[in-house]
Design a protein around this nucleic acid. Structure first.
Lengths: 189, 189
DNA sequence: CGTGAATGATGACAAAAGTCTACAATTTCA
DNA sequence: TGAAATTGTAGACTTTTGTCATCATTCACG
């Protein structure tokens, strides 16, 4: 299973990395069931997760305690609450598994050590950050300008796997649409 | 005016920087009127701007050619279209001044050179990226879960200067609210 | 400093999205 | 596998948001 992570890194940095095995040894393999809580808001985010298999939900609660999903992250991607992870401050977001998962987790101390001793690891971090940021920007721009129906169409175009693989409830909370409305709109496509 | 930039960097990295003047020499001072176009979508974003004075708007167009504002950036902050700037690909966003501005611009080549030769500059870049990302995450989480009225309240709380300093039209497009609706809701606060 | 253009406010109406209830379908896990 | 829980669909209704037209106000700029 660690091969997925190995290939992920090689794909980004090439396979001329002396230290790749050293880097990989810093990751802890975690197998989870579905609906496991990886991070609770208020706690410090201790890990950056690489998802070898499965799917994670990053979410917050609105004032009526409804979940609103900031991000849905599938295999071959990274997931964390970088604000909290980087600063050690309490997290403002929650993370849970929405499917059984195979994860590789690296803690803050190892992460820092890798950043300092393996220059390429620093590059990977920048790539994660840049990709996360690009994703957010894209999401804001579509979100602010599109109607509920157009957001659904956008999701089918941009992340079709999400539409077929996950529950309507989750998708609706990702799109910022009430689940009843989502059900109605989906029917009229 | 370059003092603003100098102080900004010192505040983040301390003033024990041998190379600070060398770094600053890479920035071009630009004075603008209001409503000047700094970046047009489709073009490559050539600069990262530091705003010493004034205010920039980062925006896109929806399908009816209405502006939707992804970000409003005021003095003592950085602004760019990092996706395009980093990759050289066409920008998906537009940037314009909404006030007369004093800017310091650094082009891609100088930026790369500084990243490689001045380790602290790399740190500044990471800080810009992290701050931009944090800002986006915050924006998504409030945006998805709040009603139009609550978004206005949020803005008054979180970025009060925006409310008093800029036009309703601009604020409405930042909040993703129709300007007529914005006017009505503001009246009932 | 005056004027033309841009911005802001408001009312009437239309459309979109949210809420609630009930029930059917599906899924989970013991 | 089968019962309990969760999820999905649908209709009736409410609330929120958007649109359009009009007029007042403010602001930018020569």
């Amino acid at each position: 299973m660690i091969e997925v992570l190995r290939n992920h890194i090689i794909a980004r940095l090439g396979n001329d990395l002396d230290n790749l095995d050293k880097v990989l040894s810093n990751f802890k393999h975690i197998t989870t069931k579905r609906n496991e809580q990886l991070l609770q808001q208020g706690d410090t985010c201790k890990y950056v997760y690489f998802i070898a298999k499965g799917c994670l939900q990053v979410y917050v609660y609105d004032k009526d305690y409804n979940e609103t999903t900031r991000d849905i992250v599938i295999e071959d991607n990274w997931c964390s609450e970088l604000q909290s992870f980087g600063s050690g401050k309490p997290a403002t977001e929650n993370i849970r598994t929405v499917e059984p998962c195979e994860l590789f987790a690296i803690d803050r101390q190892s992460f820092q050590k890798m950043m300092e001793t393996v220059p390429q690891f620093d590059k990977v971090y920048k790539q994660i950050l840049e990709a996360s940021y690009a994703n957010s920007v894209y999401r804001i721009n579509t979100f602010v300008s599109l109607s509920a129906l157009d957001r659904i169409k956008w999701l089918m175009e941009y992340r079709p796997m999400i539409m077929t693989r996950l529950s309507s409830k989750l998708i609706a909370s990702y799109l910022g649409i009430n689940k009843d409305v989502f059900s109605r709109l989906k029917a009229q496509l």
